[in-house]
C-alpha cells in the first residue's frame, strides 16, 4: 500500500506548485503588458483611417479596428485599466468590508444584526444590476462604475470576514488584550485585523476576477468606460459591429485577454485557499 500511495502524493504536491507558478507567471505577464500599455496610450487612440480593418499581421498582432487603431495596443491599455480598476475595487471594498466585519464581531449584538440584515438586502440584487443602477445614479463612466462595483462587493467581504471576527472574540489573545485593558479600537487594529488578514487576502483574490467581469459587463452595456477608452468590455461592443462582416479579431482579442486574466487570478485564488486551508464558500 505505502509504495502505491507515496508517489501519488508527491505528484499531487508538485502539480499544486505548478499551478501556482503558472498563475503567477500569467499575472506577471499581464502586469508587464499593462505597463507597456501605460506608455502607449496616445498611440492606442490615434485614428488612422487608411489602416482600418487590417487582419492580424506581423505589424499589427491582433489587426486594426474600424478607425485603424491597433487592437493589440488597445488590449494592452485595456489590461492596465482592468488591473488598476479591479485592484482599487478589491482594496477599497475589502477595507470597508473589514471595518463592517470588525464592527459586527466586536460591537454590540444589535449592531451585528442590523449590519448583516443590510448586507443581505444588498446581496439580494444581482451584482451586475445593482452596480449598474448605482453607476447610472452617479453618471456613467469608469470611476462611477468602479464605485458601483465597490458598493456590491462590500457586503461580500463583510459576510465572510464577520464569521471570522465573531470567532476571534473568544480567542485567548483577544480576551487577554481585553483583560489588560486595551481599548476596543486598539484591539481591532492590532489584534483582530492581523487575525483576519489571511481570509481578507483570499477574499480579495476571489473577488478580483468577478470584479473584472462586472466592469467589462457594465462597459459592454454602455454605462462603464465610454468609447474611445480602450476598455475590454467597450472594445467587445465595438467588435460586435464588425463581427458579422468577418472582422473577428476586434472583439475576440480583448475577450481572450479578459478570460486569461480571470483564469490566472482564479487559479491563484484556488492555490491561496489550498495553502491557507481556508474552506470558504464560492462567491
Amino acid at each position: 500500500m505505502t509504495t502505491l500511495t507515496r508517489p501519488k502524493r508527491v505528484l499531487a504536491r508538485r502539480s499544486v506548485d505548478g499551478q501556482l507558478v503558472l498563475a503567477l507567471v500569467m499575472i506577471a505577464g499581464f502586469v508587464v503588458i499593462a505597463v507597456v500599455g501605460l506608455f502607449m496610450q496616445t498611440q492606442a487612440n490615434t485614428v488612422n483611417v487608411a489602416d482600418s480593418l487590417q487582419p492580424p499581421s506581423a505589424e499589427h498582432l491582433f489587426g486594426t479596428d474600424a478607425q485603424g487603431r491597433s487592437v493589440a495596443l488597445r488590449v494592452a491599455v485595456g489590461s492596465g485599466i482592468a488591473i488598476v480598476s479591479a485592484t482599487v475595487a478589491v482594496l477599497v471594498g475589502g477595507a470597508l468590508g473589514l471595518i463592517v466585519a470588525i464592527a459586527c464581531g466586536l460591537g454590540p449584538r444589535w449592531l451585528d444584526a442590523v449590519l448583516m440584515r443590510l448586507a443581505d438586502s444588498v446581496l439580494a440584487f444581482p451584482q451586475l444590476l445593482l452596480a449598474l443602477a448605482v453607476t447610472m445614479a452617479l453618471g456613467t463612466g469608469l470611476i462611477t462604475a468602479n464605485i458601483g462595483i465597490i458598493v456590491t462587493v462590500v457586503p461580500v467581504f463583510a459576510r465572510t470576514l464577520r464569521a471570522e471576527a465573531l470567532r476571534s472574540r473568544n480567542e485567548p489573545f483577544v480576551e487577554a488584550a481585553r483583560t489588560i485593558g486595551l481599548s476596543l479600537p486598539r484591539i481591532a487594529v492590532r489584534h483582530v485585523t492581523p487575525y483576519l488578514s489571511t481570509t481578507l487576502i483570499v477574499q480579495m483574490a476571489a473577488n478580483f476576477g468577478n470584479v473584472v467581469l462586472i466592469l467589462a459587463g457594465l462597459s459592454f452595456i454602455g454605462v462603464g468606460a465610454q468609447p474611445p477608452t480602450a476598455e475590454w468590455g467597450a472594445m467587445i461592443t465595438d467588435g460586435l459591429q464588425n463581427a458579422l462582416t468577418g472582422q473577428w479579431w476586434i472583439g475576440v482579442a480583448p475577450g481572450l485577454a479578459l478570460v486569461l486574466l480571470v483564469i490566472a487570478v482564479n487559479l491563484l485564488t484556488d492555490q491561496l485557499r489550498h495553502r491557507f486551508g481556508a474552506r470558504q464558500r464560492m462567491s
Binding site: 459587463g217 458579422l244 468577418g246 472583439g251 475576440v252 480571470v262
Partner: peptide, 21 residues
Amino acid sequence: LIGLGTPPFWLALVLLLVFSV
C-alpha cells in the same frame, strides 16, 4: 475554471462568429 471566467457576451460573439458567420 474557464467557464467561470468567460463573459457571456463575449462567448456569444465567438459562437456567432464560428457557427453563424
